[in-house]
Design a protein around this nucleic acid. Structure first.
Lengths: 199, 199
DNA sequence: ACAGACTATCTATAGATATAGTTAGTTGGC
DNA sequence: GCCAACTAACTATATCTATAGATAGTCTGT
């Protein structure tokens, strides 16, 4: 399970509340990992109990208060340990390709719609990631700037480059999917006879 | 949830027992969908109760018996309906890229190991899929042959082509990942200084 | 002073998934 | 006749995940 490590990665930059983290999960990290708040809050409490985080009550307004979580030495050690451990590749689970394998069950029009949706989905993702990279390069990414501020000079370049490299991988993947989708459209047309081409 | 549709797709070819299906899930379909028997058996019972399958007791040896599931008309309709519905793209959840984004936490040697593992993993997958395609083209894929036997002549070509197309998509994806891994290795070397290159 | 938007947290529930068993019959080889 | 490998099916448990909604305080503008 990677949720806790995604949380540790964010908390390594600065202390945050569950709410802050949930918001981050909707924006930046969301491209790589998603989690709803109902999963984040319990996980944070669990991690605090295990000593990976320290919970700090912070007052907010007159009566309000919130819990801020700060990563502990154990937390940093746990994250570093996870970083050093090999990735566990989970078993395949791919609805898109499952469906693609049985496209002969559908009308060409529907098959085309599936492929077009695939292309649209990954085009959107690709553009979002490209924007992300632009922000990283331009130095306008807030999270990265905070991270860099707490990073020794010698490691800054690596920190930036690895982030960009990650998003470039996601872009490459999206582009492969787009290409596959386009090939799919062509295949559908060629199989449904020339009379229907371009429909 | 796609498990039931993966089951319906297999049962559309011929009736099978839970055991047969679990085995298929370890081999052919495993490239696209994985499920352990402890998930398959309950799902089959549920589907039978909902009328998508008919359960048939088959005797096996002297005392043994097994339950064979046969797809019903409702089952076929449900599968076709699912095939016509757009794919629901689930939220991102990608441990590999999550880890890649924080590679600066590790030593170059470890970072290289991660990348090499990624390359190895996808090389293996790519080769398996290539073999799959070879089998589809050569007509030695047992499952496909059974499927074709029950398919009207006019639809056979599409059935084969869509299968091949699916696996070609998986191959393309694997190759993108391999390329990304190789770029990662180069990046790690260039960031860790020329003295360590090639180590 | 109040509405509306936002911040903050928590709960409940259902369903999905992984892991690790248990039980029992069958088949084939030695 | 027995063992090993295989077939068949089921159970238990823990964790993960999604969806939805409940509660309550804060902040901003009118």
């Amino acid at each position: 399970m990677s949720l806790r490590y995604a949380l540790l990665a964010l908390l390594a930059v600065e202390p945050m509340t569950g709410y802050d983290l949930a918001k981050r999960f909707e924006s930046s990290v969301a491209f790589v990992w998603h989690a709803p708040d109902s999963q984040i809050y319990p996980e944070l409490r669990k991690m605090a109990k295990e000593g990976l985080l320290r919970a700090e009550e912070v007052s907010w307004g007159q009566r309000g208060k919130k819990t801020q979580y700060r990563i502990s030495q154990e937390g940093r050690a746990a994250f570093r340990e996870w970083m050093n451990a090999p990735v566990e590749y989970s078993r395949e689970r791919d609805p898109v390709h499952l469906k693609a394998a049985y496209l002969e069950w559908t009308e060409p029009v529907t098959a085309r719609k599936h492929m077009q949706a695939h292309i649209d989905y990954h085009t959107l993702r690709r553009d979002q990631w490209a924007e992300m990279i632009a922000g990283l390069r331009a130095g306008t990414n807030e999270m990265l700037n905070k991270r860099l501020a707490a990073t020794p000079e010698a490691d800054r370049r690596r920190t930036i480059e690895y982030k960009i490299f990650t998003y470039e991988g996601l872009i490459a993947r999206a582009e492969t999917e787009i290409e596959w989708g386009k090939r799919g459209l062509k295949l559908i047309d060629s199989l449904s006879g020339p009379s229907l081409q371009g429909s």
